[in-house]
Amino acid sequence: MRAGLLAIALAVAPHTAFARSPVEACLAVDQRLTDPAPLPRTSTILTGAGPLRVVAIGSSSTLGLWQSDATRTYPGRLKAELQQLRPGLSVELINSGRNADTIPGNIARFARDVAAHKPDLVIWQIGTNDITWLHSADSLTGRITDGIRQLKATGADVILMDQQYAPVILASNYTKMQESIIEAARHENVPLFSRFNLMRRTVEGGVSVTALTSWDGLHSSADGYECVGRALAHAIVATMPAAVQTQPTPAKRVRSK
């Protein structure tokens, strides 16, 4: 009798019976860092137990606007997922996001909010406020390139992160900014993590854009932050040699002062 009721339920609602959550649908998207993706310092540390020191710099979507719990921001989710993927890994993550910040504003903070922390890896999220505030992407391409060079000079690996796929962005002239970010990343040979493409492909897969964005049509929802943070962690681990991606980490090493 129970088996018959189950069969009827599946026939009536085949799509909802095994519906995936927005985050699960997002993680099913094969999102990788752009090639080439040189993260030599990070990859070396990940083969051990850390500590890995990461600085995430950017604007309000890095800070985690509308999230009162730091663990539910994208950097918080990134840290947790890295430790899940590499058991025993020690990760120190510094969130240097600032509300309403721009590319020039980020660069002005590099010495204090990035270099001073002596990071192994820097994730630089850019473009959203610059384009929504009608700054010219043409005038910013050179600044992005210069910013990448400053970050590389610290000795850290660098990952760029582009704009989010959100209604406010889609209503702007976002394509020129996307092109500038891609061009700068390619010119400086640093990997780009495209949250724009990640979110777009998730929406194309059937997830409502409102599930990934907040009420303001710009910033991420809790699921959106989790989607980005966890997917980025998978993309980072995927840069490691395939033979060691799933191996347990050895004993923890002590970071020198």
Score class of each variant (00 low, 15 high):
217 G>C: 07
70 A>M: 12
44 T>V: 14
43 S>K: 02
220 S>P: 10
238 A>C: 03
148 I>Y: 00
76 G>V: 06
235 A>F: 06
139 S>P: 08
87 P>Y: 01
150 Q>V: 07
70 A>W: 12
118 K>R: 15
8 I>E: 13
253 R>K: 15
151 L>N: 02
77 R>D: 07
76 G>T: 09
98 R>F: 15
56 A>T: 12
159 I>S: 10
136 S>E: 10
222 A>E: 12
203 V>E: 02
232 L>N: 06
57 I>V: 13
106 N>W: 01
183 E>C: 07
66 W>H: 14
42 T>K: 05
17 A>K: 09
25 A>H: 05
175 T>N: 15
218 L>F: 02
163 Q>P: 08
130 D>H: 03
56 A>W: 01
83 Q>F: 06
164 Q>M: 14
96 S>L: 06
158 V>D: 00
98 R>N: 14
151 L>P: 00
59 S>A: 15
148 I>P: 03
70 A>P: 12
184 A>D: 04
245 Q>S: 09
219 H>M: 08
157 D>F: 10
88 G>T: 02
148 I>S: 00
140 L>P: 01
40 P>D: 11
243 A>M: 00
91 V>F: 03
170 L>V: 04
257 K>Q: 15
48 G>D: 14
145 T>W: 06
254 V>K: 15
213 T>P: 05
168 V>K: 09
76 G>P: 04
246 T>N: 14
87 P>E: 02
138 D>I: 08
210 T>W: 13
179 E>I: 10
247 Q>P: 01
